[in-house]
Design a protein around this nucleic acid. Structure first.
Lengths: 123, 123, 123, 123
DNA sequence: GTGGTCTAGACCACA
DNA sequence: GTGGTCTAGACCACA
């Protein structure tokens, strides 16, 4: 469900936050949906529970997640995340920039890159 | 020459290291070429000199850069970085993965993403 | 535990690195042992934390120390440092050379030097 | 005549200064004796001439060396360096300390170290 | 609690 | 001019 890379240098809790935001933004996670428990995520991604917890807490503070005592965290009913396509494309910008910078510095042909991209998505 | 983003979460010195690796890999920086001085990079990117220095140091430890006392750092003559196209495409993988993960989680159409990518590169 | 001399001209972090290498080589520091925390060493030796940290970092790069997020650095389980006596004597060479060069240039009698050495060790 | 090690971390000009002091202290260099020219030392030790020059300049400022226009530097006639044996033994202290610290940290037997020392001196 | 990153600024060694 | 070392101190990530 999530793709966590502890080696990337990016703080784990931030990786998690952004990925949850995206899935809410796309509607893969809908208002009222349960999130995996802290313990479950910690186990499946071999990460400390407090790190998961921190991500959930910060998303709760943002109003995206809601906490119910004794139950799983859920996606907040009145979260502000637009599912609008333009907004989702905007949210993609950082990843796009990273790719174009890398393409440029590696002097790679954009068409080669696009071919790789298509292959990767089809799998 | 380099694209530094202090907000990204990725340590600045690691951003710099990867970008230098790419430019050596593509041949934009050739063995014997001088790198910008620590102070120059620090000024142009509004970053502390020690941060630049750390990146240079670690690349020297990797054997990519060479230090000459009192002179600018240079690209090492016998660096191991392949300029082979396959290897450069491989070095692109992390950026590609980030983009496909984001595309997937945002439930975006790959063709829309490719259109954005082409626009960005043409600029 | 360590003997740091800021006046010696030798960078502090290098002094520390060599002394840690020696103590691993002699088995005074064993695989799995915790090293003193960066802050502790910084306090007890009146040295900046970043200086200690730099030594630890470089020894990690050498494979002698291992980092565990949020915990103390430890001696690496599979460090390559031989505890073999011949190898330890070899590691002593630079200090031996310094002493013989000085003895020679000061035209001192080696037996006088050895007497001083014995006294110093007995204390 | 001198033993310069650019890898040691100790500034080259300081290595040179101390070695000249020792040889004056032992009488191997006597008042009025010529020192090697800057150029000669620079060549034989593969060191930049300005580095040698700096050592000579600082020893001149200390009153140990004297400069004569157009001629070689000489040992100053009225230098203050005692040739007294106690003082020469004192000048040996830093090297002795380095050796005892290393012996201790490597958990080596002092008698083994002394054997090595004797061998080294006899050669 | 642990280590990591970064800054501003001082001072040093070498070319 | 070049890079290196060190400090004091702020703030962050993780356990």
């Amino acid at each position: 469900m999530f793709s966590i890379n502890p080696q990337s240098g990016l703080p784990i809790y931030k990786q998690l936050m952004e990925q949850i935001r995206r899935m809410i933004s796309s509607g893969q996670l809908k208002p009222g949906d349960n999130l995996p428990s802290v313990r479950e995520l910690a186990l499946t991604h071999a990460v400390n529970a407090m790190t998961i917890s921190k991500a959930y807490n910060m998303l709760e503070a943002e109003g995206l997640l809601a906490r119910q005592r004794g139950k799983a965290m859920t996606v907040s009913d009145n979260n502000q995340l637009s599912e609008n396509k333009q907004d989702r494309l905007k949210r993609l910008q950082p990843a796009l920039s990273q790719l174009t910078i890398a393409t440029d510095q590696l002097e790679l042909d954009i068409e080669d890159v696009i071919t790789l991209l298509r292959n990767k998505v089809e799998k």
